[in-house]
Nucleic acid binder design. Structure first.
Length: 356
DNA sequence: AACCGGATCAACCGCCCGGTA
DNA sequence: TTACCGGGCGGTTGATCCGGT
């Protein structure tokens, strides 16, 4: 059976939106909320399909959208998350406040992907195209397995977030006053933008910062050797920023990349706590035996860290990064690979070798 | 000034998935 | 259990812009 079109397309306008249409859509949503997107166009007096209205709203008209050039920090985040998640733009967008998945997707396709390609980095796998990371002992497969596990973990985490979001919405609809957070209790169905992103799913916000306190969860990969061989300097004329590959990649061999991942849990403290998978990656120097399982380590299911699930209360102690014996997890080969990625983005800082 | 090709990005399309009757 | 619906997502397209020749 063929799928029926999302709406009757006869007589519906397509193409660029006019200011008048924008105004109608804005005015309607401001007054009534979007409600059913399918029903919205008729109610708002628009000759558009609901899907088009939703896209226009989410990608352009929504007031909490930040437009304009992407910052270095945002670029770093995109690259790092893409290395982990692939083309899951909506998931990446959840970590970039005020940016839409469409915008991030476009930016990746038009800017970042090309930059990586110029550097000899496969933008799909985030590996050097000459695959210099491959070692004779099969570390490539380990790296691939590691990435696969990380992606699986992230998938699980995102699913958990989605579930929490649904639960949050349900609770919000049941009781507007039950939460201690005022933002949680805004009237999402009526004024979607009133509370901004607070209305969205309670999500872990991945921030990448050099300045986070040491109590923050840390993903730290310590590389001791490497074989990345990007050569030359590619200058991105548009951004007036240089990517110095040879220096950058050389540095990556000894450079300790520290990603400080802060998990900001809003609205859902009690539910989240330890029941959802938590990313916890320590230093490679503390690497534990691989047969303990990468996923288990990521999920902190080691007996050493069992207290993490039993504490139940706050989440901060789960994230101190100092961990126990199980906090360090990555083998050196994986470190090298991740250092390559992390150095890529870290070294684009103006204070380091210019890369972007 | 005209043309051309690449870059950019808003918008569309089709598929997928969760909810529901 | 199943079919349908609404919404979300990722891939792709096409109009427009812009710089080079």
């Amino acid at each position: 059976m063929g799928r029926s079109p999302c709406c009757d397309k006869v007589g519906l306008k397509k193409g660029p939106w006019t200011p008048e249409e924008d105004q109608k859509l804005l005015a309607y949503i401001e007054e009534h909320g979007h409600g059913s997107w399918r029903a919205l166009p008729a109610k708002a007096g628009l000759q558009r399909c609901g899907k088009s209205c939703r896209l226009r709203w989410t990608n352009y008209l929504r007031p909490d959208i930040k437009r304009g050039k992407f910052s270095l920090q945002e670029e770093q985040t995109i690259i790092q998350l893409h290395a982990l998640l692939g083309n899951r733009w909506s998931a990446i967008a959840t970590h970039l406040p005020k940016r839409t998945d469409n915008e991030i997707k476009n930016y990746w396709n038009t800017h970042l992907k090309k930059r990586l390609a110029k550097m000899g980095i496969d933008p799909v796998t985030h590996k050097p195209k000459n695959d210099a990371l491959v070692s004779s002992d099969g570390s490539q497969s380990k790296t691939a397995a590691t990435l696969s596990h990380m992606a699986q973990w992230e998938s699980a985490r995102l699913e958990a977030e989605a579930r929490l979001a649904r639960e949050s919405k349900l609770r919000s609809s049941l009781s507007f006053t039950s939460s201690s957070s005022a933002s949680t209790t805004a009237l999402p169905a009526l004024k979607p933008w009133n509370s901004g992103r607070d209305l969205e799913s309670p999500k872990s916000t991945l921030t990448l910062s050099e300045n986070n306190p040491p109590t923050m969860p840390i993903i730290e990969f310590v590389g001791t050797s490497g074989s990345c061989e990007a050569a030359g300097v590619v200058k991105d004329e548009g951004d007036q920023r240089e990517w110095n590959h040879s220096n950058g990649m050389e540095n990556s061999m000894s450079y300790t990349s520290s990603l400080h991942h802060e998990l900001t849990i809003s609205n859902m403290e009690a539910t989240w706590t330890s029941q959802e998978p938590l990313l916890r990656i320590g230093t490679g120097r503390d690497a534990v035996a691989e047969d303990q399982g990468f996923t288990n380590l990521l999920l902190n299911t080691n007996s050493d860290d069992r207290s993490l699930s039993e504490e139940g209360g706050g989440e901060s102690e789960n994230w101190d990064g100092s961990g126990g014996a199980g906090s360090g997890i990555l083998c050196e080969d994986n470190n090298n690979y991740w250092n390559s990625i992390l150095n890529l983005v870290n070294s684009n800082s103006p204070s380091h070798s210019p890369m972007f």
